[in-house]
Nucleic acid binder design. Structure first.
Lengths: 227, 227
DNA sequence: AGTCTACATATTACATGTAACATGTCAAGG
DNA sequence: CCTTGACATGTTACATGTAATATGTAGACT
């Protein structure tokens, strides 16, 4: 028997990557912010090598962008980009759900239930941070339903990018409830093992997100133009 | 006006990456072959840093796999993996084609035509290498039809992985012709701007690839078991 | 023979060195 | 005032150094 599982990756690169990813997704490192390797290496107290590799990982995963000869910055997406990411997410998640409707285990569905339960709590408590965390979990879980690690990975990466691209588009409480409701609709269809209904439900979810993004952006631009 | 365009990336990392990728896809670096950083740096006459980064890129793009503390090896996929990659490709390419049927420019379609024309030649000349090159081009072009760089990138990466996973599954000349025919069917539907027909045609293509893979694998295993 | 240990070798993972290059500042000159 | 250019600063991209670790092999022991 194995004495103890090695839970941590132990590798500095992975720790640095995890830290940077968390900071980016939580907004402490805002879009466009430069990811200076020497700077970060000083702040984190490690040499430049692992930092360099972690930054490259972020670029490969779409959370940072490289400007030739000027290093990487936290990815900043425009409306165009956001819509493209959403389109890709829609394609992949709908496929995952359609496949998952027949392939998912009851345990998979139980997990989804659990997440939606805690999501309901976050809404009651007005905990936006918490809501977004459960949203992340829910959509990444949709990726696992296909039991296809290739699809799963891409769903996960895109959900992260999406989080950045939407600038955590501050949604009203009403919208959060709407989101939870739509999540439930997807789960219900999955439990009925109905691929068509499930993908329809998820499509509706994405349609609303897209519309909400566009109107939010429109409002923002209008406000900007007024000054 | 700019004096001259900088065609080459100029960066050693990119050159090394391109070389390694080519060697992997052409089979000179077979699946499972170790990608020793010092070794490669000696062979290529560059220091270890750019090699290291290129190898990491390969891992991120799914053409190599990391064994903790033992470095990376050229990715080697089993039947399971191959089917999962094909499933993901099907999802993404069908979506690209469905979207592209209405969004693609006539120039996009002209390019597809051109590729299929040269693909026909390769068959006449019995040029397997050439066929696979045009196959790569055709499927990557399908990714561009959506005019969505996110989808496009994933289609490209998966096609490369697929090439590895199928071990360039040596297809008979008859199968190549079958493939070309199916490609033409997709293109015809695209020119008719018919999303449903186009995705149907592409689905048929994938169905055959999958079946052909499975029967080939079955034959291979049977042969192996006999010894 | 078969197993085990010690040693030699090679590699990873991280650290550090450095030339080329980009950017900002500031003062001289139009 | 605006431009120009030398200088200072900071960064990237590549090169090299090094401790810990994994692997292969030969020889000792059972």
């Amino acid at each position: 028997m194995k004495p103890r599982a090695k839970l941590q990756s132990e590798r500095l690169v992975d720790k640095v990557y995890a830290i940077l990813r968390a900071h980016i997704l939580h907004g402490e490192l805002p879009p466009g912010h430069p990811l200076s390797v020497p700077e970060l290496s000083r702040q984190l107290g490690v040499s430049r090598s692992p930092v360099r590799e972690a930054v490259l990982q972020l670029v490969a995963d779409g959370l940072a962008q490289e400007k030739a000869r000027k290093g990487a910055v936290v990815a900043h997406f425009g409306l165009e980009d956001a819509l493209q990411i959403l389109e890709a997410r829609e394609v992949l998640e709908v496929a995952s759900v359609r496949i998952g409707a027949t392939r998912a285990s009851t345990k998979d569905l139980a997990l989804l239930h659990l997440v939606l339960q805690t999501q309901a709590q976050t809404i009651q408590e007005g905990d936006l941070e918490g809501y977004q965390a459960t949203d992340l979990q829910f959509h990444k879980l949709l990726g696992t339903l296909s039991h296809n690690p290739v699809l799963e990975r891409m769903v996960g990466l895109l959900k992260d990018q999406s989080h950045l691209a939407l600038e955590s588009a501050a949604r009203s409480l009403a919208q959060l409830e709407r989101g939870l409701h739509e999540h439930h609709a997807v789960l219900a269809a999955l439990e009925a093992r109905n691929p068509e209904q499930a993908s329809k439900a998820l499509l509706k979810h994405f349609k609303r997100i897209r519309e909400s993004l566009e109107s939010w952006l429109a409002a923002k631009n209008e406000w900007r133009d007024k000054r």
